[in-house]
């Protein structure tokens, strides 16, 4: 197999890497770029733990080839906080105890961020359906949904105030 040379942008930074043609973007992020915040729970797109935003679309990085990242823009959990300032979703997840073991948390946060960018005022039902591809086995989702509702409200208030 011939290695592919790929240039891409991750969390605003330019990256270059070489990967095998059958290597997934998740493998590249974790094993080649040490961005281990994206998790592999299944490798088949059923759990959402590897969620990233690719050119503005929420995707499972386990279902994207590394080679496909050429020239594209990727956002991962590692880019969610602004330096030492947590994103409101991150803060609300802590305040609401919306995580127990924390393995699904990065994927859920990335997915929730994508939701709020598209729908700033989602209903409980919209949140639940948007996050249906993100499995959490610890929480029963209750506190996660509350944290997303609360973060959405805070972000809206911030916008109104601005």
């Amino acid at each position: 197999m011939a290695g592919h040379h790929v240039s891409t942008t991750i969390n605003g930074d330019a990256f270059e890497f070489v990967c095998e043609p059958d290597e997934t973007l998740l493998d590249v992020l974790r094993d080649r770029l040490s961005l281990t915040g994206s998790k592999e729970g299944c490798g088949t797109g059923d759990c959402g733990a590897c969620s990233v935003i690719l050119d503005g679309r929420l995707v499972c990085s386990c279902l994207v080839l590394g080679a496909e990242a050429e020239g594209r823009t990727i956002a991962t959990i590692e880019g969610m906080a602004d330096g030492d300032r947590l994103h409101p979703l991150q803060r609300k997840f802590l305040e609401h105890a919306a995580l127990q073991c924390g393995i699904c948390t990065p994927g859920i946060l990335v997915a929730a961020k994508a939701l709020l960018e598209k729908h700033p005022d989602p209903s409980e039902t919209e949140i639940r359906y948007w996050l249906a591809g993100n499995l959490c086995r610890c929480t029963g989702y209750d506190k996660i949904v509350r944290a997303v509702l609360d973060a959405a409200a805070e972000i809206r208030e911030g916008r109104d105030a601005a």
């Binding site: 961005l35 959990i77 590692e78 969610m80 802590l94 995580l99």
Partner: peptide, 9 residues
């Protein structure tokens, strides 16, 4: 351990 878990660290 919360901040580590919401930032991917």
């Amino acid at each position: 351990d919360g901040v580590d878990k919401v930032t991917g660290r």
